[in-house]
Design a protein around this nucleic acid. Sequence first.
DNA 1: TCACACTGTTACCGATCGGTAACAGGTTAC
DNA 2: GTAACCTGTTACCGATCGGTAACAGTGTGA
Lengths: 209, 209
Amino acid sequence: MSVKAVSSEAIKTERPRVRDRILETACELFYRHGIRAVGVDAIASEAGTNKMSFYRSFPSKDDLVAEYLTDQEGEYWKWWDEVVAPYAGNPRRQAEALIESVVDLARHKMKEASGCKTSRGCALGNACVEIPEDNQRLGAIVHKYKTEIRRRLRKLAREMGAKEPEVLGDALMLLIEGSYYTRLTFPGNTGPVTAIPKAARALIDAHLA
Amino acid sequence: MSVKAVSSEAIKTERPRVRDRILETACELFYRHGIRAVGVDAIASEAGTNKMSFYRSFPSKDDLVAEYLTDQEGEYWKWWDEVVAPYAGNPRRQAEALIESVVDLARHKMKEASGCKTSRGCALGNACVEIPEDNQRLGAIVHKYKTEIRRRLRKLAREMGAKEPEVLGDALMLLIEGSYYTRLTFPGNTGPVTAIPKAARALIDAHLA
DNA sequence: TCACACTGTTACCGATCGGTAACAGGTTAC
DNA sequence: GTAACCTGTTACCGATCGGTAACAGTGTGA
């Protein structure tokens, strides 16, 4: 969402540029209702503008979706780094911190200010359901994102001295992704998500024994 | 898909009733491209008929979707029971058989005859992304389905004498759901799915120690 | 034979989809 | 002042969405 340095006066008006308003609105609507379910008309009017102004900022809806995805990815890494930072040098503690953080917020930035609706899991993962298989562009964004998650978890497993770091990393990823996925069906913490800390600890123990 | 007892001659014509052709076609298209991405026009013509005949068999698209979901659920339980049957009385072996079966087919009935496209994970779970939150009807179908999966896995964990059967059952569910979810991004067995057998065994071991 | 159930066909409905043309007003910078 | 930029507005485009009316053809069962 990074509102890039804007002409100094825009700040006092308190109203961000159209483009930023549109992107922010799109992020909320896409995440909550899905990509296909939200039209550009709805996004524009919800952002307090109209369709014509939308197409002045974005060449097409697909471009907006691409920006939505990279935006969500950016927020995810920000969350990841923040969770991991306090335990630098202690990979096991880092992994556990990540897992525990997944429990209370399956997705970062769960509208701390606004209505705090229930989480709908991973924005990128959900988008993958709606992205047509011939759309290389959007598909590649999600693939890169998930590949990076996998790489980071495997790295963490390697650093903590796991016997089979690839297996442990992948196993942790399955637990996390499963948590995101089941959030769609079980609101809040009513689902199997609550089991993830104990499960992760048991897996780590088994790989360090 | 159960083609119910049809007037004896329909067999020799080799062409099932319109309604069945439509449902079968819809199952394929919905699963592969998503629910919102497939219109009734496309389904009808793909099934060799037209829209008018479609609406003679189904009151609305939502009714077709509901039938699609319950159909997929039925196939899933059929697969489950078949995998589990050979190891009756050995709950641990049953759980392991389920896990192992998830690896080579993330979804049942992976088009054994036809083009054998890559799996797209859980039909019901994916549908949940596209179902609007105010649609109680479709949402309830998915919720019941996932709840039953959870119940069965917890039951298995209890039967094998796990110390915390709810935790073990939920943990196994997270692994399985994570496998389905990541299939969307990593085609075939290129993703973290391959780690699920070892992970599941480690978890079970930890809960039986 | 006659009636009925099933299917195909064509044309249509209002609504919405993604996307564009043309024009008007308001700021800002020089 | 004036040119450039940003935004709002209205109207429109072809295509598709879910859904319906009316009519014609076919086979079946009694």
